[in-house]
Amino acid sequence: MIACELPTENAMTSYIQGHDVTEAVNISARRATRSSVVSIVRFPLNTAQSTASIPARVYSTEYFSLYKKAPWVSDFYGNSKSLDNVKSLLPYYKSINELLKNHEYETCNSFLRFVKAKDLSDVLLVGLLRLTSSWKDDLPEWTRLLSSVTTEMSSRGKDPLVSLKGLI
């Protein structure tokens, strides 16, 4: 198992706060240039999923906090465009539900915050919203996601009024 080590949230924040970075490249670069790291977060890079496509993402205190609590989000964001069947979707549905089951609404809200509608598969455009809709009052980002999904659906030639029936 190859693991890339990320500096802790505090160590990283002063260095990268407010900057857009591409995950894989900059993680490796930062690792190489920083040696006085107090503790680490393991970030597996050698899975087929995680190396498939890693998009640029805003690194922030919130993202690091989210990643520490729910490491699967990294794979999700990297592969969300190709998650379009039961086998590939089910593990993430279960992970999202685990957050909700444990009342980790803040973490789930952070997860939704970093979701970009344009990076979602057609199924996830409807699935994420339906799956989390019961908790939308606890998830302020749900409404933003609904708005961005509606726009994205239209751009893909889908009718949001049909696909998102009951949600809008």
Partner: peptide, 19 residues
């Protein structure tokens, strides 16, 4: 239902069975 909603519902059913 459209194909996307059907796939979502199928995944949800799989989860209900497991849970």
């Amino acid at each position: 239902l459209d194909a996307d909603n059907k796939m979502h519902m199928a995944t949800f059913c799989a989860m209900v069975a497991e849970e």
